[in-house]
């Protein structure tokens, strides 16, 4: 069974620009995922304000009994959110890989407008391939 459930990419104003599910789990419908993205964006902003020490970058990990939610924020404020199985390992490294694919196949694509929803075939294909390569649960 795949350990990676889904990937969300949220732009710097809290809009969902990319969403993909990888496991046959109960899917979140489009409206809910948009809401989820903006709520996560706000929570992140609040957590930065709450931090007693300066230069906090926001929530990085949310642990639950049935899933873990890893979040990574790039320097431009784009957030990459991965929902994974609690048994999944080296997720931060995988998030870095996703970020790398994003900089290559989205930002270097002349037909992509920044902050807009991502519709790039090559990005989709490479994300899919990266998830396939991620160790599976036997």
């Amino acid at each position: 069974m795949a350990l990676i459930y889904s990937l969300y990419i949220i732009n710097k104003s809290g809009g969902l620009i990319f969403h993909k599910d990888f496991a046959p789990i109960s899917r979140v419908d489009l409206n809910d995922s948009l809401r989820l993205a903006s709520i996560w964006h706000s929570l992140n902003a609040i957590s930065v304000q709450l931090s007693p020490v300066p230069s906090c970058t926001g929530i990085e990990l949310l642990e639950a009994e049935t899933f873990n939610l890893h979040s990574f924020q790039s320097v431009t404020g784009t957030k990459f959110v991965l929902v994974v199985d609690p048994r999944a390992s080296s997720v931060p490294a995988f998030l870095q890989r996703v970020y790398q694919l994003y900089t290559d196949y989205v930002l270097k694509n002349p037909f992509y407008e920044v902050e807009m929803p991502i519709r790039c075939e090559l990005f989709d294909a490479h994300i899919e391939a990266a998830v396939q390569k991620y160790p599976m649960m036997s």
Binding site: N109, P110, F111, R119, E121, L122
Partner: peptide, 14 residues
């Protein structure tokens, strides 16, 4: 290498 041509651009080739 990094360019995905959108469908509405038809047969455009960079």
């Amino acid at each position: 290498k990094y360019i995905s041509v959108p469908r509405d651009m038809g047969s455009f080739n960079p």
